[in-house]
């Protein structure tokens, strides 16, 4: 127990001391995001992430949104376990044909009003995989998309900027 406390005290709160410019930018975008989430979603934006055929790089970067440096929860963004609890779907991958039905069902299970955000080059345009016998080629070919966040994979900062863009729209 003391070892844990010692390490925790020594580490301090990394979130409050932006070590470089990128984090200052992250903070600024985050605060604006928070303001918009406060107004439009009563202070909490619940996101259901759906991997529809990504190579898992996008997932790594979306997970990084939750680490101590980024801690998106402080801006009111939460990742939820069920589409029924979600305000928005964050979809990655070129939509493999084998995930087509599952993605459509997830979308139907999400209560309206809802947003769909395509994250990553594959989700936006098909990316490196494109359209083929095995993939549909973009999220918008399967379900309606409200916003796109390009990048291979998009960095946590780009993801946050993309979310802000949706809320501005």
């Amino acid at each position: 127990m003391f070892r844990i406390l010692k390490k925790s005290f020594q580490t301090g709160v990394v979130t409050e001391t932006p070590p470089d410019v990128a984090d200052a930018e992250f903070e600024r975008i985050g605060i604006e995001l928070r303001r918009r989430i406060d107004v439009r979603f009563s202070r909490s934006l619940a996101i259901r992430q759906v991997d529809a055929g990504s190579c898992n790089a996008c997932e790594l970067e979306i997970q990084a949104l939750n680490n101590a440096y980024h801690d998106v929860a402080r801006f009111g963004v939460h990742f939820v376990a069920s589409p029924r609890h979600a305000d928005a779907l964050l979809v990655t991958g070129p939509v493999s044909r084998h995930m087509e039905a599952a993605l459509r069902r997830t979308w139907r299970a999400t209560p309206s009003p809802k947003f769909v955000i395509a994250a990553g080059d594959c989700a936006c345009t098909g990316g490196e995989f494109g359209a083929s016998y095995a993939s549909c080629g973009a999220v918008e070919k399967v379900i309606p998309v409200d916003a796109k966040i390009p990048g291979c994979p998009p960095s946590p900062l780009e993801l946050l900027q993309g979310l802000l863009h949706v809320l501005r729209g």
Partner: peptide
């Protein structure tokens, strides 16, 4: 498994 089959070998 097989849900994220993207046809990499064909591509």
């Amino acid at each position: 498994l097989g849900y994220v089959h993207k046809g990499i070998e064909k591509l």
